[in-house]
Design a protein around this nucleic acid. Structure first.
Length: 323
RNA sequence: GCGUCGGUGGCAGAGCGGUCAAUUGCACUAGACUGUAAAUCUAGCGCCCUUUGGGCUACGGAGGUUCGAAUCCUCCCCGGCGCA
Protein backbone atom coordinates (compact mmCIF):
# COMPACT_ATOMS: atom_id res chain seq x y z
CA UNK A 1 0.00 0.00 0.00
CA UNK A 2 1.11 3.49 -0.89
CA UNK A 3 1.52 5.80 2.04
CA UNK A 4 2.74 8.97 0.43
CA UNK A 5 0.69 11.91 1.52
CA UNK A 6 -1.88 13.30 -0.87
CA UNK A 7 -3.65 16.60 -0.56
CA UNK A 8 -7.17 17.07 -1.85
CA UNK A 9 -8.79 20.45 -2.26
CA UNK A 10 -12.51 20.69 -2.80
CA UNK A 11 -15.09 23.45 -2.83
CA UNK A 12 -17.98 24.69 -4.89
CA UNK A 13 -17.47 26.44 -8.18
CA UNK A 14 -16.02 29.94 -7.84
CA UNK A 15 -14.74 29.30 -4.35
CA UNK A 16 -11.10 29.85 -5.26
CA UNK A 17 -9.74 26.31 -5.31
CA UNK A 18 -7.24 26.80 -8.11
CA UNK A 19 -5.52 29.75 -6.51
CA UNK A 20 -5.33 28.02 -3.16
CA UNK A 21 -3.87 24.93 -4.77
CA UNK A 22 -1.18 26.94 -6.52
CA UNK A 23 -0.23 28.70 -3.32
CA UNK A 24 0.01 25.50 -1.36
CA UNK A 25 1.95 23.85 -4.16
CA UNK A 26 4.46 26.68 -4.11
CA UNK A 27 4.84 26.46 -0.39
CA UNK A 28 5.07 22.68 -0.09
CA UNK A 29 6.72 21.58 -3.31
CA UNK A 30 3.59 20.26 -4.88
CA UNK A 31 2.11 19.47 -8.25
CA UNK A 32 -1.53 19.81 -9.09
CA UNK A 33 -3.93 17.26 -10.50
CA UNK A 34 -7.09 18.89 -11.72
CA UNK A 35 -10.31 17.05 -10.95
CA UNK A 36 -12.74 18.76 -13.22
CA UNK A 37 -14.95 17.01 -15.72
CA UNK A 38 -14.94 19.92 -18.16
CA UNK A 39 -11.40 21.18 -17.88
CA UNK A 40 -10.14 17.85 -19.19
CA UNK A 41 -11.27 18.96 -22.64
CA UNK A 42 -9.17 20.94 -25.04
CA UNK A 43 -10.76 24.21 -26.02
CA UNK A 44 -13.10 24.47 -23.07
CA UNK A 45 -11.19 27.25 -21.37
CA UNK A 46 -13.19 30.30 -20.43
CA UNK A 47 -16.44 28.47 -19.88
CA UNK A 48 -14.89 25.86 -17.67
CA UNK A 49 -12.84 28.38 -15.74
CA UNK A 50 -9.60 26.70 -16.65
CA UNK A 51 -6.52 28.11 -14.97
CA UNK A 52 -4.27 30.13 -17.29
CA UNK A 53 -0.59 29.56 -17.83
CA UNK A 54 0.17 32.72 -15.91
CA UNK A 55 -1.98 31.76 -12.97
CA UNK A 56 -0.17 28.43 -12.70
CA UNK A 57 2.97 30.33 -11.65
CA UNK A 58 5.16 27.54 -12.88
CA UNK A 59 3.44 24.80 -10.90
CA UNK A 60 2.88 21.71 -13.06
CA UNK A 61 -0.78 20.94 -13.67
CA UNK A 62 -2.09 17.55 -14.74
CA UNK A 63 -5.31 16.27 -16.29
CA UNK A 64 -5.98 19.50 -18.12
CA UNK A 65 -6.60 19.41 -21.88
CA UNK A 66 -6.26 15.67 -22.12
CA UNK A 67 -9.39 14.97 -24.15
CA UNK A 68 -11.08 15.87 -27.39
CA UNK A 69 -14.38 17.58 -26.60
CA UNK A 70 -16.11 15.83 -29.46
CA UNK A 71 -15.99 12.60 -27.54
CA UNK A 72 -17.19 12.15 -24.02
CA UNK A 73 -14.49 11.63 -21.50
CA UNK A 74 -15.43 9.26 -18.73
CA UNK A 75 -14.73 8.83 -15.05
CA UNK A 76 -12.91 5.64 -15.85
CA UNK A 77 -10.48 7.40 -18.14
CA UNK A 78 -10.02 10.01 -15.49
CA UNK A 79 -9.23 7.36 -12.93
CA UNK A 80 -6.58 5.83 -15.14
CA UNK A 81 -4.84 9.06 -16.08
CA UNK A 82 -5.19 10.44 -12.58
CA UNK A 83 -3.55 7.45 -11.01
CA UNK A 84 -0.72 7.67 -13.49
CA UNK A 85 -0.16 11.31 -12.66
CA UNK A 86 -0.32 10.55 -8.97
CA UNK A 87 2.32 7.85 -9.29
CA UNK A 88 4.62 10.07 -11.29
CA UNK A 89 4.39 12.97 -8.91
CA UNK A 90 5.11 10.79 -5.92
CA UNK A 91 8.03 9.22 -7.72
CA UNK A 92 9.42 12.68 -8.28
CA UNK A 93 9.26 13.27 -4.57
CA UNK A 94 6.66 15.97 -4.87
CA UNK A 95 3.37 16.35 -3.09
CA UNK A 96 0.32 15.67 -5.24
CA UNK A 97 -2.51 18.12 -4.78
CA UNK A 98 -5.79 16.97 -6.26
CA UNK A 99 -7.92 20.01 -6.82
CA UNK A 100 -11.31 20.24 -8.40
CA UNK A 101 -15.03 20.43 -8.23
CA UNK A 102 -15.96 17.04 -9.58
CA UNK A 103 -16.39 14.98 -6.46
CA UNK A 104 -17.06 11.81 -8.39
CA UNK A 105 -13.71 12.03 -10.16
CA UNK A 106 -11.85 12.61 -6.94
CA UNK A 107 -13.52 9.60 -5.41
CA UNK A 108 -12.34 7.40 -8.25
CA UNK A 109 -8.80 8.35 -7.34
CA UNK A 110 -9.29 7.78 -3.64
CA UNK A 111 -10.88 4.41 -4.15
CA UNK A 112 -14.28 5.37 -2.87
CA UNK A 113 -15.89 4.43 -6.12
CA UNK A 114 -15.25 1.19 -7.84
CA UNK A 115 -15.98 1.37 -11.50
CA UNK A 116 -16.90 -2.01 -12.99
CA UNK A 117 -14.60 -2.96 -15.82
CA UNK A 118 -17.40 -2.89 -18.36
CA UNK A 119 -16.86 -0.35 -21.11
CA UNK A 120 -19.80 1.54 -22.57
CA UNK A 121 -21.60 -0.32 -25.32
CA UNK A 122 -23.03 2.28 -27.65
CA UNK A 123 -25.04 -0.14 -29.74
CA UNK A 124 -26.71 -1.56 -26.67
CA UNK A 125 -27.37 1.90 -25.28
CA UNK A 126 -29.10 3.02 -28.44
CA UNK A 127 -31.33 -0.02 -28.25
CA UNK A 128 -32.12 0.44 -24.59
CA UNK A 129 -32.80 4.11 -25.09
CA UNK A 130 -35.96 3.19 -26.94
CA UNK A 131 -37.49 1.35 -24.01
CA UNK A 132 -39.68 3.06 -21.46
CA UNK A 133 -38.26 3.70 -18.04
CA UNK A 134 -40.54 1.07 -16.53
CA UNK A 135 -39.37 -1.48 -19.07
CA UNK A 136 -35.76 -0.68 -18.30
CA UNK A 137 -36.35 -1.17 -14.64
CA UNK A 138 -38.05 -4.52 -15.02
CA UNK A 139 -35.29 -5.62 -17.33
CA UNK A 140 -32.74 -4.79 -14.69
CA UNK A 141 -34.80 -6.66 -12.12
CA UNK A 142 -34.52 -9.85 -14.08
CA UNK A 143 -30.81 -9.33 -14.69
CA UNK A 144 -29.64 -8.18 -11.28
CA UNK A 145 -32.12 -8.17 -8.47
CA UNK A 146 -29.90 -6.61 -5.87
CA UNK A 147 -28.83 -3.76 -8.07
CA UNK A 148 -32.46 -3.15 -8.96
CA UNK A 149 -33.29 -2.75 -5.32
CA UNK A 150 -30.69 -0.06 -4.80
CA UNK A 151 -30.97 1.90 -7.98
CA UNK A 152 -33.05 4.98 -8.61
CA UNK A 153 -35.72 3.44 -10.79
CA UNK A 154 -36.53 6.71 -12.51
CA UNK A 155 -33.04 7.52 -13.64
CA UNK A 156 -32.83 6.18 -17.17
CA UNK A 157 -29.15 6.92 -17.55
CA UNK A 158 -28.27 4.84 -14.52
CA UNK A 159 -30.72 2.13 -15.44
CA UNK A 160 -29.15 1.73 -18.85
CA UNK A 161 -25.64 1.58 -17.46
CA UNK A 162 -26.69 -0.95 -14.82
CA UNK A 163 -28.23 -3.17 -17.48
CA UNK A 164 -25.09 -2.78 -19.56
CA UNK A 165 -22.97 -3.98 -16.66
CA UNK A 166 -25.29 -6.82 -15.75
CA UNK A 167 -25.40 -8.09 -19.30
CA UNK A 168 -21.66 -7.87 -19.77
CA UNK A 169 -20.92 -9.75 -16.61
CA UNK A 170 -23.75 -12.18 -17.21
CA UNK A 171 -23.68 -12.23 -13.51
CA UNK A 172 -25.37 -14.82 -11.41
CA UNK A 173 -25.54 -12.54 -8.41
CA UNK A 174 -24.98 -8.88 -7.86
CA UNK A 175 -22.43 -6.53 -9.27
CA UNK A 176 -22.18 -4.75 -5.98
CA UNK A 177 -18.57 -4.50 -5.02
CA UNK A 178 -17.74 -4.39 -1.38
CA UNK A 179 -14.11 -3.35 -1.35
CA UNK A 180 -13.52 0.34 -1.03
CA UNK A 181 -9.77 0.26 -0.70
CA UNK A 182 -7.64 2.13 -3.15
CA UNK A 183 -3.95 1.84 -3.93
CA UNK A 184 -3.42 5.06 -2.02
CA UNK A 185 -5.01 4.35 1.28
CA UNK A 186 -8.19 3.23 2.88
CA UNK A 187 -10.84 4.44 5.21
CA UNK A 188 -8.90 3.28 8.22
CA UNK A 189 -5.65 4.80 7.11
CA UNK A 190 -6.35 8.08 5.43
CA UNK A 191 -3.23 8.92 3.55
CA UNK A 192 -4.74 12.05 2.25
CA UNK A 193 -5.87 15.30 3.69
CA UNK A 194 -8.99 16.86 2.27
CA UNK A 195 -9.30 20.59 2.58
CA UNK A 196 -12.66 22.14 1.76
CA UNK A 197 -13.20 25.80 1.07
CA UNK A 198 -16.14 27.16 2.98
CA UNK A 199 -17.68 30.39 1.84
CA UNK A 200 -20.59 32.40 3.04
CA UNK A 201 -23.41 31.47 0.66
CA UNK A 202 -24.36 35.03 -0.20
CA UNK A 203 -20.78 35.80 -0.99
CA UNK A 204 -20.49 32.69 -3.10
CA UNK A 205 -23.58 33.61 -5.06
CA UNK A 206 -22.21 37.07 -5.76
CA UNK A 207 -18.91 35.63 -6.91
CA UNK A 208 -20.65 33.21 -9.22
CA UNK A 209 -22.73 35.95 -10.80
CA UNK A 210 -19.86 38.35 -11.18
CA UNK A 211 -17.75 35.67 -12.79
CA UNK A 212 -20.40 34.67 -15.27
CA UNK A 213 -20.96 38.23 -16.37
CA UNK A 214 -17.25 38.67 -16.84
CA UNK A 215 -16.93 35.54 -18.92
CA UNK A 216 -19.81 36.45 -21.18
CA UNK A 217 -18.19 39.80 -21.87
CA UNK A 218 -14.69 38.44 -22.24
CA UNK A 219 -14.60 35.82 -24.89
CA UNK A 220 -16.98 33.10 -23.79
CA UNK A 221 -19.30 33.60 -26.72
CA UNK A 222 -16.44 33.52 -29.19
CA UNK A 223 -15.13 30.39 -27.54
CA UNK A 224 -18.40 28.56 -27.98
CA UNK A 225 -18.74 29.82 -31.54
CA UNK A 226 -15.34 28.44 -32.29
CA UNK A 227 -16.12 25.09 -30.71
CA UNK A 228 -19.22 24.83 -32.83
CA UNK A 229 -17.31 25.77 -35.94
CA UNK A 230 -14.80 23.10 -35.10
CA UNK A 231 -17.47 20.46 -35.12
CA UNK A 232 -19.13 20.41 -31.72
CA UNK A 233 -22.82 20.02 -32.35
CA UNK A 234 -25.36 22.11 -30.48
CA UNK A 235 -26.43 18.92 -28.87
CA UNK A 236 -22.96 18.19 -27.64
CA UNK A 237 -22.58 21.70 -26.30
CA UNK A 238 -25.89 21.30 -24.53
CA UNK A 239 -24.66 18.12 -22.88
CA UNK A 240 -21.61 19.96 -21.61
CA UNK A 241 -23.97 21.99 -19.44
CA UNK A 242 -24.02 25.38 -17.78
CA UNK A 243 -22.25 28.10 -19.76
CA UNK A 244 -21.86 25.90 -22.82
CA UNK A 245 -25.52 24.99 -22.76
CA UNK A 246 -26.57 28.59 -22.30
CA UNK A 247 -24.32 30.14 -24.91
CA UNK A 248 -25.20 27.42 -27.41
CA UNK A 249 -28.83 28.37 -26.97
CA UNK A 250 -27.91 32.01 -27.24
CA UNK A 251 -26.17 31.46 -30.55
CA UNK A 252 -29.16 29.55 -31.82
CA UNK A 253 -31.35 32.45 -30.68
CA UNK A 254 -33.31 30.17 -28.44
CA UNK A 255 -32.71 32.43 -25.46
CA UNK A 256 -31.94 36.09 -25.11
CA UNK A 257 -28.91 37.53 -23.47
CA UNK A 258 -31.08 39.10 -20.82
CA UNK A 259 -32.07 35.64 -19.69
CA UNK A 260 -28.67 35.21 -18.13
CA UNK A 261 -30.41 34.98 -14.77
CA UNK A 262 -31.37 31.48 -15.80
CA UNK A 263 -27.71 30.57 -16.18
CA UNK A 264 -26.86 32.11 -12.85
CA UNK A 265 -29.50 29.93 -11.28
CA UNK A 266 -28.24 26.79 -12.99
CA UNK A 267 -24.76 27.44 -11.71
CA UNK A 268 -26.11 28.02 -8.27
CA UNK A 269 -27.94 24.70 -8.41
CA UNK A 270 -24.71 23.11 -9.50
CA UNK A 271 -22.82 24.63 -6.58
CA UNK A 272 -25.44 23.26 -4.23
CA UNK A 273 -25.18 19.80 -5.75
CA UNK A 274 -21.45 19.93 -5.20
CA UNK A 275 -21.93 20.84 -1.57
CA UNK A 276 -24.44 18.05 -1.12
CA UNK A 277 -21.87 15.63 -2.43
CA UNK A 278 -19.27 16.68 0.11
CA UNK A 279 -21.60 16.90 3.05
CA UNK A 280 -21.40 13.19 3.68
CA UNK A 281 -17.61 13.20 3.85
CA UNK A 282 -17.01 13.97 7.50
CA UNK A 283 -13.24 13.91 7.11
CA UNK A 284 -13.13 17.13 5.09
CA UNK A 285 -11.40 19.95 6.92
CA UNK A 286 -13.40 23.03 6.10
CA UNK A 287 -11.30 26.17 6.06
CA UNK A 288 -12.04 29.85 5.71
CA UNK A 289 -8.69 31.21 4.64
CA UNK A 290 -5.24 30.37 3.35
CA UNK A 291 -3.61 30.37 6.78
CA UNK A 292 -5.82 27.57 8.02
CA UNK A 293 -5.07 25.53 4.93
CA UNK A 294 -1.36 26.03 5.28
CA UNK A 295 -1.40 25.04 8.91
CA UNK A 296 -3.39 21.88 8.23
CA UNK A 297 -1.09 20.90 5.45
CA UNK A 298 2.03 21.52 7.49
CA UNK A 299 0.79 19.29 10.29
CA UNK A 300 -0.34 16.65 7.87
CA UNK A 301 3.00 16.49 6.09
CA UNK A 302 4.94 16.59 9.32
CA UNK A 303 3.85 13.29 10.75
CA UNK A 304 2.30 10.00 9.85
CA UNK A 305 -1.40 10.49 10.30
CA UNK A 306 -2.00 7.66 12.69
CA UNK A 307 -5.37 8.65 13.90
CA UNK A 308 -7.71 7.45 16.50
CA UNK A 309 -10.92 6.37 14.91
CA UNK A 310 -13.27 9.27 14.63
CA UNK A 311 -10.59 11.81 15.30
CA UNK A 312 -10.35 14.48 12.68
CA UNK A 313 -7.04 15.69 11.46
CA UNK A 314 -7.74 19.11 12.85
CA UNK A 315 -8.26 17.74 16.34
CA UNK A 316 -5.19 15.59 16.16
CA UNK A 317 -3.17 18.56 15.04
CA UNK A 318 -4.34 20.59 17.97
CA UNK A 319 -4.16 17.81 20.53
CA UNK A 320 -1.31 15.57 19.47
CA UNK A 321 -0.80 14.22 22.99
CA UNK A 322 -4.22 12.68 23.01
CA UNK A 323 -2.81 9.83 20.98
C1' G B 1 -68.61 57.07 -18.06
C1' C B 2 -70.41 52.69 -20.89
C1' G B 3 -68.99 47.87 -22.66
C1' U B 4 -65.85 43.82 -22.22
C1' C B 5 -62.16 40.34 -20.41
C1' G B 6 -59.74 39.33 -16.07
C1' G B 7 -58.00 39.26 -10.55
C1' U B 8 -55.97 31.76 -7.92
C1' G B 9 -50.60 29.66 -3.34
C1' G B 10 -43.24 33.34 -3.99
C1' C B 11 -44.02 33.93 -9.68
C1' A B 12 -46.27 32.16 -14.28
C1' G B 13 -50.58 29.73 -15.18
C1' A B 14 -54.79 25.55 -15.01
C1' G B 15 -59.35 24.63 -12.68
C1' C B 16 -65.17 27.04 -13.90
C1' G B 17 -70.82 23.85 -8.40
C1' G B 18 -68.92 18.38 -4.88
C1' U B 19 -63.62 13.57 -6.24
C1' C B 20 -59.76 21.08 -4.63
C1' A B 21 -55.27 22.71 0.02
C1' A B 22 -56.35 23.35 -5.48
C1' U B 23 -53.15 20.09 -12.41
C1' U B 24 -48.52 21.89 -14.24
C1' G B 25 -43.93 24.73 -14.89
C1' C B 26 -40.42 27.88 -12.41
C1' A B 27 -38.35 29.32 -7.82
C1' C B 28 -37.28 27.43 -2.93
C1' U B 29 -35.57 23.29 0.61
C1' A B 30 -33.51 18.55 1.28
C1' G B 31 -31.41 14.34 -1.02
C1' A B 32 -29.34 10.41 -4.53
C1' C B 33 -25.04 9.41 -7.43
C1' U B 34 -21.48 1.64 -9.52
C1' G B 35 -17.45 4.51 -17.15
C1' U B 36 -22.17 10.87 -19.83
C1' A B 37 -21.27 13.50 -13.05
C1' A B 38 -21.25 21.34 -15.03
C1' A B 39 -24.53 15.40 -16.59
C1' U B 40 -28.72 12.59 -14.79
C1' C B 41 -32.41 11.67 -11.17
C1' U B 42 -35.70 11.79 -6.44
C1' A B 43 -38.60 13.90 -2.45
C1' G B 44 -40.94 18.01 0.11
C1' C B 45 -43.15 22.68 -0.61
C1' G B 46 -50.61 26.93 3.36
C1' C B 47 -50.72 26.16 8.89
C1' C B 48 -51.38 22.62 13.03
C1' C B 49 -51.85 17.53 15.02
C1' U B 50 -48.31 11.27 16.08
C1' U B 51 -50.85 8.44 11.16
C1' U B 52 -52.58 5.50 4.80
C1' G B 53 -55.95 9.98 9.15
C1' G B 54 -57.93 14.55 11.36
C1' G B 55 -58.50 19.93 12.23
C1' C B 56 -57.97 25.10 10.74
C1' U B 57 -57.34 29.16 7.25
C1' A B 58 -57.39 29.90 1.98
C1' C B 59 -58.55 31.16 -4.74
C1' G B 60 -59.05 40.46 -4.76
C1' G B 61 -63.02 42.38 -0.63
C1' A B 62 -68.05 42.17 1.45
C1' G B 63 -72.58 39.88 1.14
C1' G B 64 -75.93 36.18 -1.15
C1' U B 65 -77.87 31.49 -3.70
C1' U B 66 -77.04 26.20 -2.56
C1' C B 67 -77.02 20.31 1.37
C1' G B 68 -72.23 22.04 -0.82
C1' A B 69 -68.72 27.66 -4.20
C1' A B 70 -62.07 28.98 -6.40
C1' U B 71 -66.24 27.79 -9.57
C1' C B 72 -73.18 30.84 -9.81
C1' C B 73 -75.46 36.01 -8.36
C1' U B 74 -75.03 41.27 -6.33
C1' C B 75 -72.18 45.33 -4.89
C1' C B 76 -67.27 47.28 -4.09
C1' C B 77 -61.86 47.63 -5.06
C1' C B 78 -57.86 46.78 -8.72
C1' G B 79 -55.79 45.72 -13.91
C1' G B 80 -56.00 44.93 -19.57
C1' C B 81 -58.64 46.10 -23.90
C1' G B 82 -62.63 48.61 -26.93
C1' C B 83 -65.96 52.73 -27.39
C1' A B 84 -66.84 57.46 -25.62
Amino acid sequence: MQTSPIIVIVGPTSSGKSALAVRLAQKFNGEIISADSRQVYKGLDIGSGKITKREMKGIPHHLLNVANPKRTFTASQYQKLGNQALAQIIKRGKVPIICGGTGFYIDTLLGRVIIPAVPPNQALRIKLEKLTTEKLFSKLQTLDKIRAENIDRHNRRRLIRAIEIAMALKSKGSTLIASKDSPWGSKDCPCWLTIGIKLDLDKLKKKINARIKFRINHGLIAEVEKLHRNGLSWRRLDALGLEYRFVAKLLQRRVKREEIAGLERSIWHYAKRQMTWWKRDKTIQWIKNYKEAERLMRHFLAGPPRLERGTTLLESAVLPLKL
